Amino acid sequence: MTEELLWRRREDEPRQGLSPGRIVSAAIELADAEGLEGLSMRKVADRLGFTTMSLYRHVPGRDQLVDLMRDEVMTEHPADHDGERGWRARLASVARHAWRIRGRHPWLAEIRGTRRLPGPNAVAHYDYMLSTLTGTALTPSEVIAVVGLVGRFVDAEALLLVESRREERRSGVSEEEWWGARDSLYERLDRYPTISHLWTSGGWNHPEDSFEFGLARLLDGVQALIDERDESRDEICEECGTPLKPATSGRPRVYCSRACQQRAYRKRTKTT
């Protein structure tokens, strides 16, 4: 039933009364305000003015509701007008787009599990991310691995937002206020030379943007791999002329297969 709900036609829902769309919208508002831990079918029902049991006629349970919420907030698709700027600019653009969505809905990063069904919007996002690397020297499995790595990085950064907002809701004190009141701790840190050096050098005065810094370093690594693939892309088998796949380790490859290597060896032995 979850798959049918995720891939349903929104325009077929009734305009009046209770519907999956109305339930999902109310649940998103609740999660935005209280985090995923504050989400329950009862609270959503109260927000809508219906009984909890009435919600179950439209959505089977909380887990299915979370899947619907995730797909709904991904309705806004990344703009595909960076095609002329190369893979790196396009992938960075879609990563920032995902980051902005998580800025509005940090609870997205709290959705855990490897068996959550995607809806059409989530699939469209994933397909676009994969397309940013299509045509590069990466192998198909490497394209999939890179996109997964970028996605996990975005979620890891978003979890910091989740944790800080959770603490602020619990304590009523912001991160800046809490750390600003830790004078007794700072007085103890002068015994640590590296921390003291970085402190006096102004290392904490203007901190790096953790998302932008991390994204740039991650993409640097992908760039290095693509450059490495590009350098070996034109290498061909000395025996049959087939393009060679890059060697995973050791010396560069000369032949595309064991058979070509043996044919070349036999040719050499005949001429000697």
Rank of each mutant, 00 (worst) to 15 (best):
R166Y: 05
K270F: 03
P60D: 06
G38C: 03
L149W: 03
E3G: 08
S196Y: 04
I101S: 04
E239A: 14
L225D: 11
T52G: 05
S40R: 03
R116W: 05
A92T: 04
L138A: 05
T134A: 15
P106S: 08
C240P: 00
L185S: 13
I28E: 09
D63P: 00
Q223E: 15
W199A: 14
R253D: 07
A158E: 08
R115H: 10
L219W: 12
R15L: 12
K270T: 07
S54Y: 10
R229E: 06
R152Y: 06
R8T: 02
L55V: 13
T269F: 01
H197E: 15
T52I: 01
G221D: 13
P207M: 12
I144N: 09
Y126D: 07
Y186G: 10
A158V: 06
P246F: 11
T242N: 09
Q223F: 02
E3Y: 06
C237S: 05
A158H: 04
D63H: 10
T272F: 03
I226P: 10
A224Y: 09
E142D: 06
S25M: 10
E4N: 13
H77C: 01
E239D: 10
A122D: 07
L39N: 12
T271K: 14
N121W: 12
F50S: 07
T139Q: 12
C256F: 04
D220G: 13
W99D: 15
R88L: 01
T114K: 11
D227F: 08
R191Y: 14
E142V: 01
R169M: 05
D71T: 12
F50G: 00
E163W: 08
A33M: 00
L159E: 15
V143H: 12
T139P: 00
A92R: 14
G241M: 02
G180R: 05
R100L: 05
G35N: 03
V59D: 09
P193T: 15
E110T: 08
A216K: 10
R188F: 02
T194I: 12
E76V: 11
T134S: 15
G17K: 11
